[in-house]
Write a protein that binds this DNA or RNA. Structure first.
Length: 424
RNA sequence: GGAGAGAUGGCAGAGUGGUCGAAUGCGGCGGUCUCGAAAACCGUUGUUCCGCUAUCGCGGGACCGGGGGUUCGAAUCCCCCUCUCUCCGCCA
């Protein structure tokens, strides 16, 4: 969420920037500024009354100490009207504060200046395309057929155990999964990330901190008995490690990497293009998270993009990097790069990673701050995260692109992890 | 699941109605001493909001798990909630 200072001091700038996200902010911001000024007015008044009150109370204490009961009683009389006034004022301020917060929460993050205008995915900008497009025969099968042919992933069995979108990985399919996870984690650790195994259920505070709650409540599985949420991404627990934390500037950037299963209800988002592994309720993902100094967060973003690029490149997958336009970006992001890999049999690009800088938007919710050495005031950090990588679509692309008469060739970098170079 | 105890500043830990944002110790930071370091000594050391101020800063409010109440006055008394710990039981 944006800070009230940001809005107050740069009203027009905020409105202009939000237009890039096709968000009309004029009205909300007008309301916010109104609420803010009345809040401050009441606050000032309340504070000064409270001050008077405190002074009198102290006097009464003194008087009582010296046994001057009558004078104390006289002072006490003075407090009644004050007390009443304070109560009236502070009762007023609470609903104003609540409303103010409700309004501020409606504002999306400001897009970075490099974000292209645009309404939808069509207006995203491809910044780079890499890898070699595979040549496969016309008889090539989409991955949902290949997994049956080689008996490596079983959707029907998942339906039996749980429901649609909960596949069961079997034999070499399971091993491939484990190989990818290990490969991604090892590469991350080599790149300076600390490996973390977080809980995969979180409480409400964590859900709020990274922005899943309250708005996207319906996207998470909710264990109501204990009021825990199954995480939709490791971003949630890993970023929340830094909730309510004040760090020294020297420790930044902090880099964490985590593998977790991810759970998404995907309510209402099933359609033509989501067969097979393209969309699941449970999937595996390795996530990288950085907490960065505001002056250097875009260096962190580059660092992350380069890292993800090296992963898809080393898996020999054709890929492209896309800068999302304002209309296609998430509510919380300031700048997002998507990575897509080519799935040759489906003849489609599949999104396998989304790397974003949230600047101080999440940090403000998380109350994650830092202090410059020798500086007294705290400032909000910048948070970033990205998939490195999401497994199912990577698997889909590997299966489709690497299929041959003899079977599916395992990418070279994975062979040390799988122990086999062919799925057949 | 049963019984009990507790939640105070970065940590440990005092504080049961007034001058307590909070003793003390440890840690951190600055300094003295030293060739340097350690020790010792001195000082300093939370967050947040409002107002004034070009800035340093100054003044005021709030915060002792969260919420409500009693009182002129609450860390301290009362009520509710949450969480943690210990013992017993069960158990991967």
């Amino acid at each position: 969420m944006l800070t009230i200072n940001q809005i107050r001091e740069n009203k027009n700038f905020v409105i202009e920037r939000l237009k890039v996200k096709n968000f009309k902010a004029d009205e909300i911001i007008g309301k916010i500024l109104l609420l803010d000024s009345s809040r401050r007015e009441i606050q000032t008044k309340t504070d000064s009354r409270q001050n008077e009150m405190n002074i009198i109370s102290k006097e009464i204490g003194e008087l009582m100490k010296y046994g001057k009961r009558e004078e104390a009683e006289a002072a006490r009389q003075k407090t009644y009207s004050l007390k009443e006034e304070i109560k009236v004022l502070s009762d007023k301020i609470i609903p104003i504060e609540n409303e103010l917060k409700n309004e501020i929460i409606k504002l999306p993050n400001l897009p970075h200046k490099s974000v292209p205008h645009g309404k939808s995915a069509e207006e995203n900008v491809t910044v780079l395309q890499g890898g070699i497009m595979p040549e496969i025969s016309d008889k090539a099968l989409p991955h949902w057929d290949l997994i049956k042919k080689y008996d490596i992933i079983d959707f029907d069995l998942g339906i039996k155990l749980t429901g649609a979108g909960f596949p069961v990985y079997l034999g070499k399919g399971a091993k491939l999964q484990r190989a990818l996870i290990s490969f991604f984690l090892d590469e991350g650790v080599k790149a300076g990330y600390r490996e973390v195994i977080p809980p995969i259920m979180v409480n409400e505070d964590s859900g709020f901190g990274t922005g899943q709650l309250p708005d996207k409540e319906g996207q998470m599985y909710h264990a109501t008995l204990d009021n825990f949420y199954l995480i939709p991404t490791a971003e949630v627990p890993v970023t929340n490690i830094y909730r309510d934390v004040i760090m020294n500037a020297e420790v930044l950037p902090v880099k964490n990497i985590a593998y977790t299963p991810c759970f998404r209800r995907e309510a209402g988002s099933w359609g033509a293009h989501v067969r097979g592994l393209n969309r699941l309720h449970q999937f595996d993902k390795v996530e990288i998270v950085q907490i960065a100094h505001p002056d250097f967060s875009y260096e962190s973003l580059n660092d992350m993009v380069n890292h993800v690029e090296s992963l898809v490149a080393r898996l020999d997958l054709p890929y492209r990097i896309i800068r999302l336009c304002g209309g296609d970006m998430s509510f919380t992001s300031a700048l997002t790069y998507d990575f897509e890999v080519w799935a040759a049999a489906q003849k489609r690009w599949l999104e396998v990673s989304s790397v974003s800088n949230f600047e101080s938007f999440q940090a403000n919710r998380l109350k994650c701050r830092f202090k410059e050495k020798g500086d007294k005031q705290t400032k909000l950090v910048h948070t970033l995260n990205g998939s490195a990588l999401a497994l199912p679509r990577i698997v889909a692309a590997i299966l489709e692109n690497n299929q041959t008469e003899e079977g599916i060739k395992v990418p070279k970098v994975l062979v040390p992890y799988t122990g086999f170079d062919m799925i057949n």
